[in-house]
């Protein structure tokens, strides 16, 4: 059998919808790797996409459905 090189898994990371986000900061609170930052009156930023574990806690907690997961 020929071994095939394993596929690099692409993880989904959160996308923040500026039209829905009300800047509450909950997503940053739940992030287990503390890699979401919420600047004042702006849409949250994913600081280190490599650290994201795709746990979807931010998507789950967002009260305004402003977080969606998507692959890079």
């Amino acid at each position: 059998m020929k071994s095939t090189p394993s596929k690099q898994r692409v993880r989904s990371t959160p996308r923040f919808d500026s039209a829905r986000c009300k800047n509450c900061g909950l997503c940053a609170c739940v992030c287990p790797v503390a890699s979401i930052e919420v600047p004042a009156s702006e849409v949250p930023i994913l600081l280190e996409p490599d650290k994201c574990t795709s746990c979807r806690s931010c998507e789950f907690i967002c009260p305004d459905f402003a977080v969606t997961m998507a692959k890079a």
Binding site: C29, C31, P32, T53, C55, S57
Partner: peptide
């Protein structure tokens, strides 16, 4: 502001 995740599964330092 820290939101912990608690589980009986083997978890890493993030709690997941």
């Amino acid at each position: 502001l820290i939101h912990p995740h608690v589980t009986g599964l083997i978890h890493d330092e993030t709690g997941f």
